[in-house]
Each structure stands twice: as structure tokens, then as C-alpha cells.
Computed example of a mutant assay.
Amino acid sequence: MAVHMPNCLLTGVPYGADQTVYLVFDSFGASRSDCPEKEIERDDLETIISDLLTGQFNAPVRVMAFNTLEHWIEDVSNQVAEEIQARCDIDSVSVPEHVRNFVASHTGFAASGALM
């Protein structure tokens, strides 16, 4: 799987530590010639999900995980979007507007819950 990674990525990545780091790419509508996405680094998936649900990101587009020792990277956007949808379903609330497009684009469900 090829993943487009802007040149402005990974500025604060720890070296040598065996940890998985999560990056949220939050789009601010910058031009494609500029850094199109701003990355926000977190060190655990629960914090990412909580921050997404509480509006810490304006327009999330992707969540990537990578391990600094094992040298792997994975797009976990689908996993995060499904977890957000599941938590909203359990609480019988709508997906918050600020993450609605993110959830819809990674789960295949429209904002109304209908399969796209």
C-alpha cells in the first residue's frame, strides 16, 4: 500500500524508543503545493479517539500509526472511524459534526447512517 506522505511530516519523532506513535492529519484547506495537512502527534490510540470526539481537530482526514523501533507504518483511519461510530451508536448520539466527514469517508456510511 502506497501512502502519500507530505514533506512536512515527522518532525518530533523519538528515535530508538520502542513505541507506537499516532499522527492525526488535520486539513486546513492549504494549497497542495504547501503542506496540505497538519499532523498532530499522540502516543496512544485512546487519546486520539477522545481528542477527535471532543473537537480537538478541525477537519481530520487520516490517522497513521508507526512504530519507531520496528519501523512499520499503518493507516488506522478505518479502525478509528469505526470506533468513533461504535461509541456514538452505544451512546445513542449522532457522530459529532466536526468528525462526521472523517467517519463517513472511512466507514462507508453517510452522515445519516446509510451505506454509501
Rank of each mutant, 00 (worst) to 15 (best):
A81G: 09
I90E: 12
W72C: 04
Q56P: 01
E37N: 14
C88H: 10
P96Y: 07
F102M: 06
P36C: 09
I84P: 02
E83F: 00
V61L: 06
E74G: 14
S92N: 14
W72S: 11
H106C: 06
L10Y: 05
D75F: 00
K38V: 15
Q79M: 09
V93C: 07
L45W: 01
T11W: 04
G113C: 11
F109Q: 12
A2Q: 07
G12C: 08
L53F: 03
L69H: 11
G55F: 07
Y22D: 04
V93G: 03
E46F: 06
V80Y: 00
V93W: 03
F25E: 10
S92G: 09
N78R: 08
D44V: 08
N101A: 10
R42Q: 13
P6C: 06
V76F: 08
D34Y: 08
T54E: 14
L52Q: 05
E39L: 01
C88P: 09
K38F: 12
E46D: 14
A104H: 02
D91I: 04
A81N: 03
V3E: 13
T20W: 02
L52K: 01
D44S: 14
N67W: 08
N7I: 09
Q19C: 08
S112K: 12
L52G: 05
S77R: 00
G113I: 08
L45R: 02
V80K: 00
M64Y: 01
K38H: 13
D34M: 08
D91A: 15
Q19W: 05
E70Q: 02
E46K: 13
A86K: 02
D51P: 01
C35T: 03
S33F: 10
M1F: 03
S94E: 11
G55P: 07
D89E: 15
G55Q: 04
E39M: 01
T107K: 00
G12R: 10
I84E: 04
D34Q: 13
S77D: 08
A17F: 07
E97A: 10
D91E: 15
P14H: 08
A114T: 04
C88A: 07
Y15V: 15
D91R: 15
A110Q: 13
F66V: 05
F102C: 03
A17I: 13
R87N: 15
C88N: 11
V24A: 05
G108A: 03
R100K: 10
P6W: 02
E74V: 12
N58A: 12
F109L: 15
D89S: 14
P14R: 03
E39D: 10
F28D: 11
H98L: 10
V103A: 02
I40K: 10
F28K: 06
T20F: 02
S31H: 11
N67R: 07
T20R: 00
D89C: 07
H106K: 12
N7S: 14
D34K: 03
L9C: 10
Y15D: 09
F102S: 02
P36Y: 12
V61D: 05
R87D: 13
Q85V: 14
L23W: 01
D89H: 12
A81M: 04
